[in-house]
Every structure is written in structure tokens, then in C-alpha cells.
Design a protein around this nucleic acid. Sequence first.
DNA 1: ATTCAATCAATAACCATTCCTGATCCGAAG
DNA 2: CTTCGGATCAGGAATGGTTATTGATTGAAT
Lengths: 148, 148
Amino acid sequence: MNIAEMPTKIDEDIREKFRRSGYTLTSQRRAVLEALGETSGHPSAEDVYLIVKKKNPRVALGTVYQALSVLEDIGIISSKRWSESPIRYDVNTKPHLDIRCIRCGEVSEIPGVDLGGLKSRIQGSTPYEVTSASLVVEGICPACQKNL
Amino acid sequence: MNIAEMPTKIDEDIREKFRRSGYTLTSQRRAVLEALGETSGHPSAEDVYLIVKKKNPRVALGTVYQALSVLEDIGIISSKRWSESPIRYDVNTKPHLDIRCIRCGEVSEIPGVDLGGLKSRIQGSTPYEVTSASLVVEGICPACQKNL
DNA sequence: ATTCAATCAATAACCATTCCTGATCCGAAG
DNA sequence: CTTCGGATCAGGAATGGTTATTGATTGAAT
């Protein structure tokens, strides 16, 4: 597998999703997506804005919000909310668990927890039509545990 | 069991929690708590404010927020957050599931779902010290399903 | 009754996010 | 390659829930 192929493959995937959705793949939206891919963590809209601004100082914060909303709408990225924090974005769109440190704010993934059937188990106990069920997890990261 | 005893019993419980916490049980805080008890639903701070205002038009919205924060701090009430909604308050402090209708905003409890061991199961998969794990559930209520 | 900290009412400030407007871009059709 | 119209953009104002500030008021312990 040629490493140089990867970006092209990803591009094809993304282009396809944009085409099907009717949205246009603009340079700003591509820049937002790239910024999201560059960060190891789970950045906020503001974080993404600051990264994008380095290469294109003219982008507006509102544009970043709008781009993130479009990217999420077509299923290229996902978002999660915690109290005391702006919305965090993630290139991982598969159902998974993320935990946020209540001291330093860092978010990281928790692998290996089975979330299967959560929504359907809930659906069995309510007359509502369940559209989403997500787990919000908070804690104290190893670094902050040490620094008291 | 004398029905007239109930309010007194509740009062004792609450008085005790206030005394232990060091906060003072003021008329405003009592009014906020009573307002919460009167509503069948899961009111927002604003909802509570409007109810309290009927009997005491001089209370300030900020006072309601502060009272709710104190009541939650000492474990008399609980709160939950959904996107697209202000924080909702509840006199039920036991772990339980609530679902919010994404059409009309109504919140109601989902009984009969076992949440046991959720936190500890997560704790087993992360080096973080897990402090909270809560489920945010959204859906469409029966009434809104009918009205298209 | 007095006192001092806690609480209050009123209002300003905050912050993440959304909305608005006129300018700009971009792709489809000639 | 040009034209055209709708989508998108930059910049900035507006929004809405919540928190912070301040001087006045309350109330529990002397």
C-alpha cells in the first residue's frame, strides 16, 4: 500500500460525501477538516479557528462554525458536549466513549467499552421514538491526579 | 400515616441538609424548592423563576440560579443538560434516565432501565478517575409523533 | 438589641454560538 | 472562455443562558 495514496483516497471519500449532499467543498471547509486532522486532541471551534487562521488569516470564526456544522451534517466529523466546555469536535464518527478532565479540560478516548444495544435497550422502555443516546463521561486525568 | 406529617418530615430532611452544609435556608430558597415540587415536568431556571415570581414578584432571576445551585450542591435536587435547551432541574436525585423531545422540548423520565455499574465499567477501561457518567437521551414524544 | 457574614435584588458582563449583510466565489450552461 | 445565479464567505452585530458585581438587606449568634 502506497502511503502517497492515502490522502487521495480520503479526498475521494470526502468529495463523494460533499457531492451527494449538495454542499460544495470549498477551501475553507477543506482547511477546517485538515486542522481537525492535525490535532491529536478534541478541539473546540475556537481551537480549529486558531489553527486555520495560521495559514489563512482572513477566515472568520463564523465560517469555521458553519464549516464544522456542514462537516458534521454529512457525517465526516462528530461533536460532543460537556458542561463547562465549548463543543468538542472529532474526526472519529463511529460510536465511542470520550472522557473529559474536569481539571484541565483534556478530552481523550476510552477504548474497549461495549456500547452495543444502548439505544435499543432504552427504546424498549419508552413510548418516545429514541433518536439519540450518548454517554457523557467526566473524570480526572492521570496528570491532574498527580498534581494534586 | 398522617398526611399532614409529610411536609414536616420533608422539612426536617431539608433543614438537616442545610444545617450540615453551612448554607442558610432562606425564604427564597424554600420558594424555589416548592416551585420545583409543584411542577410535574423538569423546569428550567426561567420556568422556576416565573413560578416563584407569582408569589414573590421581587425575586431576581439571579437569585433563582443561585438557589438552584445551592440546592443541587447539597443534594436536594439534580440537573441535566441537553443541547438546544437550558439546564433542566429535578427533585429526583437518584440516578435515572430522562428523555427530551427534540420537537416540543418536553422531558420525561424513563423508568425500568438498569444503569447499574455503568460508572465502574467505564472506570475499568481508563486511567482517568471517573467522577461522573450520565446518559443524554433524546427522542420524539408520542404527541409529536402523531402531529406529523 | 447588636453585629457581621451570608444572602439578596438589580443589573451589567460573559461567552459560545448564531444571525445578518453585502461582497466574493464557483460551477453549470452557453 | 465568459456569464449568471445560487452558495459561501468575512466581518461584525445580536442572541440567550448563565455568572459576576455591587450596594442594600437579612438573619443567626452573640
